[in-house]
Nucleic acid binder design. Sequence first.
DNA 1: TATATACTGTTCATATTGTCACATTAAATA
DNA 2: TATTTAATGTGACAATATGAACAGTATATA
Lengths: 219, 219
Amino acid sequence: MKKQDFIVQKELIQRLVRYKNILLKFKSMGLSKAFSDNLGDAAGVSSSLVRKDFSLAHLAVGNKRGGYPIDVLLQRLDALLGTQILQRIVIVGCGKIGTALMNYKGFANENVEVVAGFDNNPARINPAAAPIPILPVSQLAAFVKEQDIQVAVLAVPENAAAGILDQLAAAGVQGVLNFSPVQLKAGSSLFIQNINIAFEIENLFYYVRFNQRRAAAET
Amino acid sequence: MKKQDFIVQKELIQRLVRYKNILLKFKSMGLSKAFSDNLGDAAGVSSSLVRKDFSLAHLAVGNKRGGYPIDVLLQRLDALLGTQILQRIVIVGCGKIGTALMNYKGFANENVEVVAGFDNNPARINPAAAPIPILPVSQLAAFVKEQDIQVAVLAVPENAAAGILDQLAAAGVQGVLNFSPVQLKAGSSLFIQNINIAFEIENLFYYVRFNQRRAAAET
DNA sequence: TATATACTGTTCATATTGTCACATTAAATA
DNA sequence: TATTTAATGTGACAATATGAACAGTATATA
């Protein structure tokens, strides 16, 4: 089987999605053409890479002079990535992070709708809460199956993370955005994106310190 | 100048920090020795890579039989990365995400202290708030300079992000964790880690869809 | 003490990823 | 219409990162 027939590279997909978002922004600004140069700038990559990505993804529609027609490119990107219809997700764990995400406005712009929250703490449970009901974790699996939820956000404490992940996987969830401070590993049919905020900050400090030391050593 | 003398690779540093966290966890569980195998498992990388990383970082202290003494390894990691003393950060933008972060307990475990929040909205400003005062953005630069803050979290709306970033850079901040939905690019003396939640979720959906399609095509 | 074992450290091979450079070609211009 | 120009598309290449393999050696065991 040829590898090239399908896109494997995780980063490539990410970049394509990013290009798409940038193109949408360009379009909303009234532009109708984009150049590999602009796109690269906006996406933080080189123009060569933009062109190569388009080439690899078989969606090269650029005019040798005058760049890429944004509309055509967007169409092709949609055909490749799949049109982004309304995406329904659930949030497991309604602590600080979880509730902040439930109220996060950024989702609306991206066609993401949080349809339910789940928690173990009886004090937080409120099936009648509007617009997002908060249900007990015991109902998680059934809900996910019934509503055909594909992606879930995990914002539970460290010790609960692995257990919930199993439940989600068993219920058929295929993608998880994990905010809990454990590095969860993905199975074959489950995709996990880990975001560990404290870890990122720690990392930043180390990086800053490293830069300082290197700068000091270079003088 | 030899490259090997200093660690350049961003991912290597990240892995080292991760190893360190795992080692701390091991230690708190009462273990005194670690093996490249365990470490790799926990960090989600191969055992070869663990050994290679240690080798590159010049902190190979493993016994040919019996693995790595955790205490020694931690000491060396600290010597290399710099001991993690209390890290003071500020949070700019006290909306949903910002406030959630201010109350986030995960920071305490990692020796990170949020010393102030900043916002433009007068309704949110409260210099007397305990334990974290919320100050007007106009005071940001002065505060950062005076308190010698090195790392800031950015949780402002899209249109404000670039402006605040400039202010932070000018005031001497060296690391920024950016939650705003713009992909900010780092200057030479400023390090940026972007976290775009909506984007991550969007990405997950695309990835899930891709996997489905590939699975369908492979049958 | 001698031997066996099991883990490290390092070398080598391989795969992957992004950049460079250039031929190609559509539009602009005269 | 002929020519110029400015952008793309892609093959070759270099850099990098990872995995596999294996020699070397400290500990355990008898």
